[in-house]
Design a protein around this nucleic acid. Structure first.
Length: 419
RNA sequence: GUGGGUAUAGCUCAGUUGGUUAGAGCGCCAGAUUGUGGCUCUGGAGGCCGUCGGUUCGACCCCGAUUAUCCACCCCA
């Protein structure tokens, strides 16, 4: 127990972390190009935020949250998703007073108490993007474009964008009635969960995976065919915008999303290469969420992208993340005096911005050379009594084995020139 | 919450139809004559064979439970 990470969590060890850095750097670059700035919010929030934001009837809130009381009796929840906290921060800090839109992004851990499987953890990490303040469907397309661009930059091609519109409260209400009257005669044949969904959230029945439910609703009316004029116009504009950006998409009327806050645009980016959990990015518009969280009526749209799943996609596509150079120079040393001199040297090199390391294991010279090779040191200098007294050192280029003799004092300049 | 698979070295996995000292590859450490890496060769360290109980003269192997892990359902990223 002591030496085991909790179920559904994973360490990122030093030899793997470069992949995260690589992706994070590209994300930051893309966000910056699109005018999105980073926001950092707490790992935990008041439970109420998620109940209100994500929705009391959702699975996430009903059975997947890490909720506990703190010592003062407050109900606290580890964030199960990133949008509600972003909205809370948007409202609390009065960002709606700035010129709109407000365009933000974040990296955050998310916590959900579920049984782990391929592509599903109890703690996973998301890259998320939110844009507040604009109702323009063009911004929906641009949000989607950020996710598409990221995957394109990483060299992934086998992904599919699926879009839908799930309407606004008005047309959804009307549609729900239509849906209910369609479903009512079939109710006895539906599964137990769907019987429950009928009153609370009939839209979800369309998404049910039970065969008997699927069989019942083969000619179910979709909301996409029952949108009000405004929502229809919005969806048309979205499609047009995606065309302008040359983004391929599939209209999938069964996308409903499991978080209650979505309105109008809902989308998923999916793959079939990483197991059953193929949604790599999911998001949509949430025009009522800011108001529901106590802010002024403000439209919004965003997405969450699971980073662990992103890495699964890279793996399945056999895409290698370039490894960084870990070490510029390694100072091999023999004997106490040389060890001290090596310490002085690496310290001076480091303060000049050169990645430098030395032996701390009292290894033989041969072993030190092997080590230097293994850590990927570009250059090696051997320090012994001779070098210390003469101040002349041989700098070996590990990439081709050539050596050059220079004065010890010139090492920094020499390396700056070579690197 | 439900179902199935798996559990042997740091990692990936063999293995014994139940019988004495449990194996490989990779990795790690060291050596192959003087102070120079990658390739090769040699050697070494490293395992209560997940845990507890049962069957048996004898269990790493069979049975049960338990825990962990993987996969799937549900749901989601």
């Amino acid at each position: 127990m002591l030496t085991k990470a909790p179920k559904g969590t994973k360490d990122v060890i030093p030899s793997e972390v470069y992949k995260w850095h690589y992706v994070e750097n590209i994300v930051r670059e893309i966000c910056s190009l699109n005018g999105f700035r980073e926001i950092r919010t707490p790992v935990f929030e008041h439970t109420e935020l998620f109940e209100r934001g994500v929705g009391e009837t959702t699975d996430v809130v009903q059975k997947e949250m890490y909720t506990f009381e703190d010592k003062a009796g407050r109900s606290i929840t580890l964030k199960p998703e990133g949008t509600s906290p972003a909205v809370r921060a948007f409202v609390e800090n009065g960002l709606f007073n700035d010129s709109q839109p407000t365009k933000i992004f974040y990296f955050t851990p998310c916590f959900r108490y579920e049984n782990p499987q391929a592509g599903r953890l109890r703690e996973h990490h998301q890259f998320g993007v939110e844009a507040f303040g604009s109702q323009d469907a063009a911004i929906d397309a641009e949000i989607i474009n950020i996710a598409i661009t990221l995957y394109k930059r990483l060299g992934v091609e086998s992904l599919q964008l699926r879009i839908n519109s799930i309407g606004c409260p008005e047309c959804r209400n009307e549609y729900n009635n239509k849906l209910k009257s369609y479903l009512q005669p079939k109710l006895p044949a539906l599964c137990e969960t769907c019987k429950g969904r009928y009153e609370k959230n009939p839209l979800r029945i369309i998404d049910c995976k039970e065969e008997k439910c699927k069989a019942q609703i083969t000619d179910v009316p979709f909301i996409i065919d029952n949108l009000c004029e405004e929502c229809n116009t919005h969806f048309d504009k979205l499609k047009k915008s995606l065309d302008i950006l040359e983004i391929q998409y599939i209209i999938d009327p069964t996308i409903v999303r499991g978080l209650d806050y979505y309105t109008k645009t809902a989308f998923e980016i999916v793959t079939n290469t990483i197991g059953a959990q193929g949604t790599v990015c999911g998001g949509g518009r949430y025009d009522g969420l800011v108001e529901a969280c106590g802010g002024p009526s403000t439209p919004g749209i965003g997405f969450g992208m699971g980073l662990e799943r992103l890495f699964l996609v890279l793996e399945s596509a056999d895409i290698q993340v370039p490894k960084p150079n870990y070490m510029d120079i390694y100072i091999a040393n023999m004997g106490e005096a040389a060890s001290s001199e090596a310490q002085r040297l690496v310290s001076s090199l480091r303060s000049n911005g050169i990645k430098a390391d030395k032996d701390y294991m009292k290894r033989s010279l041969k072993a030190q050379m092997k080590y230097a090779n293994k850590i990927g040191a570009r250059f090696v200098v051997v320090l012994g009594e001779e070098e210390i007294s003469s101040k002349n050192i041989k700098v070996k280029d590990m990439s081709n084995g050539t050596e050059e003799v220079i004065n010890m004092n010139q090492l920094t300049d020499f390396l700056k020139q070579k690197l």
